[in-house]
Computed example of a mutant assay.
Amino acid sequence: MKPVAHRLLLLRHAEAQPPAGGDLSATADLARPLTDEGHRLARHRGETMRRTGIVPDLVLCSPALRTRQTYAGLLPFGQNARPEIRIEPTLYLAAPDELLARLRVTPDSVHTVLLVGHNPGLPALARYLNGVETALESDFGLGTLASFRVEVEEQESIALAWKGLGPKTSWLESFSQN
């Protein structure tokens, strides 16, 4: 059967302000807003996505203020684009295996997923999906966007995409830093 293409977008949040008063607690970290430069970069990412016609069906976003503001800076995707957005606490500073587990329960009717999160989980997941550790040696700088094409084979009229997500099912399409 003919493969069906799905796309996974991994986006690290844009530049955030340092924690107020040097407070290193999770509560203070979750509340860190974007800097002016961070807002500019998020808007730039959104403009690039609109130019290239990338519109997510589903947005999975960490609850941190900086990730939510990064996502908001991408908008609007288009006139009729209405992606479902899920703010999920488990995505905050999630390890790559946790991110992968979350992606694998995505319904296959969803063709494009945008995951907005943090280092070090996002670059580790990208390296795993790319299947070649050295191909993505660079860490995800602030605002980095990696796009993967996820191959899906239809078997008996059932397309299984996200459940089998892994290095031999996904291919790096683009990697954009600043």
Rank of each mutant, 00 (worst) to 15 (best):
T90V: 11
L74D: 02
P83T: 13
R102L: 13
S62Q: 05
I85Q: 14
C61Q: 06
T67Q: 09
G53Q: 03
A101P: 01
P89Q: 01
R104L: 02
L93C: 02
N80V: 05
D57Y: 04
I87N: 03
E98G: 12
T70E: 08
I54C: 04
I85M: 14
A95M: 11
H111E: 14
L75F: 11
V59Y: 07
P89F: 00
D57A: 10
S109D: 15
R68S: 00
T52C: 03
L74Q: 03
T67R: 04
L58M: 10
L65A: 11
P96Q: 14
P56L: 08
I85Y: 01
D108N: 15
A81E: 13
P107S: 15
E84V: 13
P89H: 00
N80K: 05
R66F: 07
A72N: 06
V55A: 13
I87M: 02
D57Q: 12
E98D: 09
P63A: 11
Q79S: 13
E98K: 13
S109Q: 14
S109N: 12
A94E: 04
L91G: 00
Q69I: 01
A64N: 04
T90Y: 02
L58R: 13
A95C: 05
C61T: 12
I85F: 00
I54F: 05
R68L: 07
S109T: 13
P76A: 11
L91W: 02
V105P: 03
R86K: 15
A64S: 15
L91R: 02
R102N: 07
Q69Y: 08
L103T: 06
I87A: 00
R86T: 05
R82T: 15
H111R: 15
A81R: 08
Q69S: 07
Q79I: 07
C61Y: 06
L60V: 09
T67S: 14
P56M: 08
F77W: 11
R104H: 05
A94T: 12
T70Q: 06
Y71R: 07
D57W: 04
L103N: 14
F77K: 01
F77M: 07
P56S: 10
E84M: 08
D97G: 02
V110W: 11
T67F: 05
